[in-house]
Design a protein around this nucleic acid. Structure first.
Length: 715
DNA sequence: GGCGTTTTCATTTGT
DNA sequence: TGAAAACGCC
């Protein structure tokens, strides 16, 4: 097999067989290339059948890409290969095996929202005060416990104070409720395979035999259950190959354990460790900035990226008066890539920062795409329709039942629901059982009719599952429910949007059916519950991408903007105990190393919270960790004039898109730092042209147009 | 008892 | 600013 496309270290990692391999792969060092070549090498040179290979990636999109790249390299049928995220691989195993653990094979996967609703339900059922016992914090505690492999039993005797005692009860009851609902939360998806392997050694043996070679990407972000999963599959044959970078570990808060990568050798014994330090992505200045930041961390393995690329542009620093002004300045920057908007991405620490930037881009008609935040499948109208589908598939799904029992409104409110629940809990095995005993429930006549109609509808469509196409079932159900009328009669922009989203959702089911002709609704539900925005992301369209730094992991862009570099926001600072400044720093490192050509870091001197009045902020300490000599300060305002009024007027009454590009010799311009000046000479054309300007204090400066951010006083 | 309206209160990060 | 909870009217 031709490995000439690999450098020396990459090649060594690919060819090493017979020992566990750990590859420390720095940002942009060709990690994906090594993984794909390794898999292709196993198939082509070692003769391993694709179905005996397990490769775990961080996103579904990455899995798809890896699959097609391996296919290009090996040129044979690899449809049996197992590539996916931890969650999707686990779900696949459980669909076959979960009956051993007392669930049905059409179990439902609860997302965070569903799981929170269930926690809340449990707290209510235990007659606890929702104000004292916050569902959100208990959900987090349950999730943390699971990520630390701590079962309900573990907390039985750790019940000193009120809150701990209640935690045990809630955790216990929550797990029971999940089982009653025939449902798993995201964490259980990882835990149940471990339980299966433990209780049914023959199942473990089966999967050990099946997965003869195990590869893991982004190994630094694996948590305890994920490690156990990999370890139980691979510790016997030791055919394991992991790739990661401890400097890019940014998921500690959800249990990712950096010691998994740092202690790889202790876990798997004698191993081959390879370091990839040549970076093929970024300029030297970007790497220098990234290095000066991350090297401040103490707990890291020693390595330093280098590149044969030139030094490139300086790191541009943007200073803004407030968050709106920041959005405006970012828009100005984006404008320079008007015809290649997919060459620039805007990154931020928190999703809430996206709105103000989004507003500006929308006003200016710049196409954009936001990843994360409220996901498509998390929208209320979509979740409502999904709840109907889930209830058809799983008649024990309480969360879905409660979501739609009165949507669209059918006169069954809070107190009716309580009565139904009470009856259901004592008498029935599934919600459909209620159909036979509606008259025994203590409900009003109107409510009885409504409930009967509702359950009748579920029953009718359930009976069609095996012989009708999912999309047809859903379409006809939506018609029965008269959702179109429900939304369109409201005649608000919002309700029209919602109806359009439902149409888009329907189209999505049809598309899924075309791509998966043998599939049913259960598989469709699984697919979308494990899908993220990144997986749906189209990176070839002419649109600016907005996303959190977390979402940007593993991606690259020509140019990036990192917004909101203020102390408290990035790095985020909440309380004194659980702040993790080193992880914040790694996060900033990840952000910087996404860029190939240019990095623009931005901060605002004041920022609004919850849409209130602006609060004074402090510039991020991370900015000071970048050497001054590689920062371009041209966009930093030295004057303290309030720009707000100015740009508001401009946007309202004039077209800002024609306000640039009109500089000629002798033009009068104003620069943010140097003040007013006269253009003496123009060398080159367009954004990269070099301007010689004589400022009013007789200082002559040569400035590159695109960085100078000049205001034209007279063209 | 249900449903529309007002008030409150919250923002890390995500499978 | 926006979603969920509390409120108060029919």
């Amino acid at each position: 097999m031709d490995l000439t496309n690999l450098n020396k270290n990459q090649k060594k990692a690919v060819e090493k067989i017979g020992l566990p391999v750990l590859v420390f792969a720095g940002a942009g060092s060709g990690k994906t290339r090594v993984l794909t070549y390794k898999i292709a090498y196993l198939i082509n040179e070692i003769g391993l059948p694709p179905e005996n290979i397990l490769a775990v990636t961080f996103t579904n999109k990455a899995a798809q890409e890896m699959k097609s790249r391996v296919f290009e390299l090996v040129n044979q049928d690899i449809s049996g290969i197992n590539i996916g995220t931890f969650h999707s691989i686990s779900a696949q195993i459980l669909r076959r095996e979960i009956h051993n653990l007392g669930f049905s094979n059409s179990f439902t996967i609860y997302d965070q929202q569903d799981s929170r609703s269930l926690v809340k339900k449990v707290i209510k059922n235990l007659n606890l005060d929702l104000k004292q016992i916050e569902p959100k914090s208990f959900q987090t505690r349950i999730s943390n416990a699971k990520n630390s492999l701590l079962s309900v039993e573990h907390f039985k005797n750790f019940s000193d104070n009120y809150s701990d005692k209640k935690f045990y009860e809630i955790y216990k009851s929550y797990q029971e409720e999940l089982k009653n609902c025939d449902s798993l939360d995201f964490d259980d998806l990882l835990l149940l395979p471990l339980k299966l392997f433990k209780e049914f050694p023959d199942r473990l043996q089966k999967y050990r035999n099946k997965f003869q070679y195990v590869l893991v990407d982004e190994y630094q972000d694996t948590n305890k259950p994920q490690f156990e999963f990999i370890y139980s599959l691979a510790n016997e044959h030791k055919n394991i190959f992991v790739v990661g970078d401890d400097d890019q570990s940014i998921y500690g808060w959800r249990g990712a354990d950096i010691s998994n990568i740092l202690n790889f050798r202790e876990a798997f014994g004698e191993s081959h460790i390879e370091k990839l330090e040549q970076n093929y992505r970024s300029t030297n200045n970007i790497l220098q900035a990234a290095w000066s930041v991350v090297s401040k961390n103490t707990n890291r393995s020693e390595k330093k990226l280098w590149t044969e690329n030139g030094s490139g542009d300086l790191i541009n620093l943007l200073e803004s008066f407030d968050d709106r002004h920041e959005a405006k300045q970012i828009y100005n920057l984006v404008l320079k890539f008007k015809n290649n908007l997919n060459e620039i991405a805007i990154l931020y620490r928190t999703n809430s920062q996206s709105r103000i930037i989004e507003d500006r881009l929308r006003i200016e008609n710049i196409p954009y795409q936001i990843i994360g935040g409220v996901k498509f499948y998390d929208r209320k109208e979509i979740k409502d329709v999904l709840a109907y589908i889930r209830l058809l598939v799983n008649n024990n799904d309480s969360i879905s039942f409660e979501r739609i029992i009165n949507f669209p409104p059918r006169g069954i409110g809070k107190s009716s629901l309580e009565k139904i629940n009470e009856f259901y809990l004592t008498t029935s095995n599934s919600y459909l059982d209620l159909l036979n005993s509606i008259n025994e429930i203590n409900l009003g006549q109107k409510q009885k009719v409504s409930l009967n109609d509702f359950l009748g509808l579920i029953k009718k469509y359930k009976s069609e599952i095996d012989f009708k196409k999912g999309s047809e079932i859903v379409k006809s159900m939506i018609q029965d429910l008269q959702l179109e009328n429900y939304y369109l009669k409201q005649k608000t922009d919002e309700s029209i949007d919602r109806w359009n989203n439902i149409q888009e959702f329907l189209a999505g089911i049809e598309e899924f059916e075309i791509n998966n002709p043998e599939s049913n609704l259960v598989e469709y539900l699984e697919e979308i519950s494990l899908l993220t925005d990144i997986d749906r992301w189209n990176d070839s369209e002419n649109r600016v991408t907005l996303m959190t730094v977390h979402s940007s992991k593993g991606l690259e862009f020509d140019n990036i903007v990192i917004a909101g570099l203020e102390d408290g926001l990035f790095p985020i600072i909440r309380s004194f105990e659980d702040d993790n400044i080193e992880e914040e720093r790694r996060l900033f490192y990840v952000a910087l190393t996404r860029a190939k050509k240019s990095v623009n870091i931005s901060y605002a001197k004041s920022r609004r919270q919850f849409g209130g009045s602006p609060i004074i902020t402090t510039k991020s300490r991370f900015i000071k960790e970048i050497p001054e000599k590689i920062i371009n300060y041209n966009l930093v305002h030295k004057k303290t004039n309030h720009p707000t009024d100015n740009y508001r007027k401009i946007n309202k009454f004039s077209n800002p898109r024609n306000s640039s590009n009109e500089i000629v010799v002798n033009s009068l311009v104003e620069h943010k730092v140097f003040g007013k000046g006269k253009v003496l000479k123009i060398e080159g054309i367009g954004d990269n042209s070099k301007l010689t300007i004589k400022f009013y204090n007789n200082v002559v400066k040569k400035l590159i147009y695109k960085y100078a951010n000049l205001t034209i006083i007279k063209g």
